[in-house]
């Protein structure tokens, strides 16, 4: 749940990119850093990596000032996807206000996707969040790969037909679908935020201006 700091007039949100190893979480964050133009944009902080694999997390801070003069700060995290780092994954997921699940479209990765999604569900519960109320977007990444190698959009849509979450197809490598994914998440996060902090009423920020301020239009 977002942090509300009256002294420093600051609201801090935590958004987490989750998913199996090598699905493109870190790449999503790097693209966002390039693509977004919010009022305030920090540098990506990459903790430790090993052969390009995240060992702790990546962090991208974004923010804007409300008409009321408050700072709304969004901290975008990635988790390490490798199975072994579950404790770290859980700690990073703690206190999340929203999650992007980055799935790997490659056929061969179906089982890993399923396992990682189940792991997300379990960890959400373990860290005391309500899975049914958690803003979540499912992104199928690496759509640029040859069709033979990846699941078709039809197949994926069919498999996820019953799921309540927005489904986005992307290629983080090229930068397609990355911003869209993020926007879909912001749209889900806004209502809870507005409810808790009266963003619209007190701070003069409606959903549209919220998304625009974070992404830079």
């Amino acid at each position: 749940m977002a942090e509300f700091d009256e002294v420093n007039r600051k609201i801090t949100l935590k958004l987490v990119y989750y998913g199996p190893a090598q699905s493109g979480k870190t790449t999503n964050l790097m693209r966002l850093h390039d693509l977004l133009a919010p009022d305030l944009k920090g540098e990506i902080m990459t903790l430790e990596t090993q052969n390009d694999r995240t060992l702790f997390f990546d962090l991208l801070p974004l923010g804007f000032r409300t008409p009321s003069g408050w700072l709304v700060k969004l901290k975008l995290f990635t988790v390490p996807g490798q199975v072994a780092h579950d404790a770290t994954r859980k700690a990073v997921l703690s206190r999340a206000d929203g999650v992007v699940f980055v799935a790997d479209s490659q056929r061969a990765q179906s089982a890993n996707n399923a396992e990682a999604f189940q792991n997300l569900e379990e960890n959400v519960q373990r860290v005391g969040l309500d899975f049914s109320a958690l803003p979540l977007v499912v992104q199928f990444n690496k759509r640029d790969l040859p069709a033979a190698q990846i699941l078709s959009e039809d197949e994926i849509n069919q498999r996820w037909a019953k799921a309540p979450w927005p489904l986005v197809f992307s290629s983080a490598l090229i930068g397609e679908g990355v911003k869209d994914t993020f926007v879909r998440l912001l749209q889900q996060v806004y209502p809870a935020l507005d409810k808790s902090f009266a963003l619209q009423e007190i701070h003069g920020v409606d959903q549209q201006s919220f998304v625009a301020a974070v992404t830079g239009g």
């Binding site: 902080m45 903790l47 702790f56 404790a87 770290t88 703690s94």
Partner: peptide
């Protein structure tokens, strides 16, 4: 900040 975050994350996972 990097150091503090890594250290505290480590502590958090250990405590977990």
């Amino acid at each position: 900040a990097r150091y503090l975050m890594a250290a505290d994350l480590h502590i958090e996972t250990v405590q977990e």
